[in-house]
Nucleic acid binder design. Structure first.
Lengths: 153, 153
DNA sequence: CACAATTAAATTGTACACAATTTAATTGTG
DNA sequence: CACAATTAAATTGTGTACAATTTAATTGTG
């Protein structure tokens, strides 16, 4: 009886159950947090990756495409079209570097700089729309940053 | 002197610095973990979202497009073309429900079922490629799941 | 029963994300 | 100096992700 039991039921490996996946909640959370940003960013007519590019330009000023890519972990295949869209919206300028024509310098236009003022309230808006204790968010951030260091070793 | 200091330096709000963003590490981790899956999934000729669909089919068997969408938080705009690709690869079948023609039933083909055996090693491979202590991963998963519950309230 | 409302997928359109390749400029080496 | 190697972006192609709309089937209500 015990033997037939073993033969009749092929047990689903616990490992492959959705509920036991670690990556799945990370993937889901990333999408859902970006969905929370969406209405706020819509007011600025920005997508989340476009907002990230604006953040690094506000923080560090004019820089190469590859510097932005390094900070945001994005390659030129993603950035080139994204930057062209920001250029069309007159938020940035793209100029070839005079000393090295391979390099494209990305800089903010006056209206790109001005958008900073409108964006300042976003972190607080997010924090309130998103009813999680600060210490829990801090803990999440620290664990993820440790894991990212491990992955990138 | 102090007054001129205030006027001359416009201070970047700490809130908008990339290093203080919580969403950015979540977004980065999701992409990087999917990149770790990529070489393993390439052997199965699956993308990460396709792998997730296979997981729910292996776990729960035949089901509606919308049931898969509910479990994976994906809509028909994403799932319809993805499922057509899995169908082209002969891993699944798509059939209209006889009782309600609006519903499309998704079921595994024999080769879709068989792929389960090849996929069984993936969680262990991931765990080893990814040098993070198990308890830290467990903690990450628990925090994220709590946050997802909050967000979906 | 008729028909408005609802539902499930599919479709359309925009925007990443990334692999692989190409183009053009610069650097290193014989 | 010539030319192979390298580098930075751009390009090409595939596959999500999601908003908005459409299509077709079903349900609810007068």
């Amino acid at each position: 009886m015990c033997v037939t039991f073993v033969f009749y039921f092929k047990v689903m490996s616990e490992n492959l159950k959705l509920s036991n996946q670690v990556c799945f909640p990370v993937y889901t959370l990333a999408k859902e947090v970006i969905n929370l940003y969406r209405p706020m960013l819509k007011d600025l007519d920005l997508t989340y990756p476009q907002y990230l590019v604006m953040l690094v330009l506000w923080e560090s000023g004019e820089q190469h495409v590859s510097e932005i890519g390094c900070k945001l972990h994005l390659d030129s295949g993603t950035l080139t079209p994204l930057l062209k869209r920001l250029e069309q919206k007159k938020l940035i300028e793209r100029n070839r570097n005079k000393n090295d024509e391979r390099i494209v310098q990305i800089s903010l236009t006056p209206s790109g700089k001005k958008m900073y003022e409108k964006a300042e309230c976003i972190p607080d808006q997010m924090a309130s729309s998103f009813n999680i204790p600060i210490n829990q968010l801090q803990e999440l951030k620290e664990i993820i940053e440790q894991i990212l260091i491990q992955i990138n070793k």
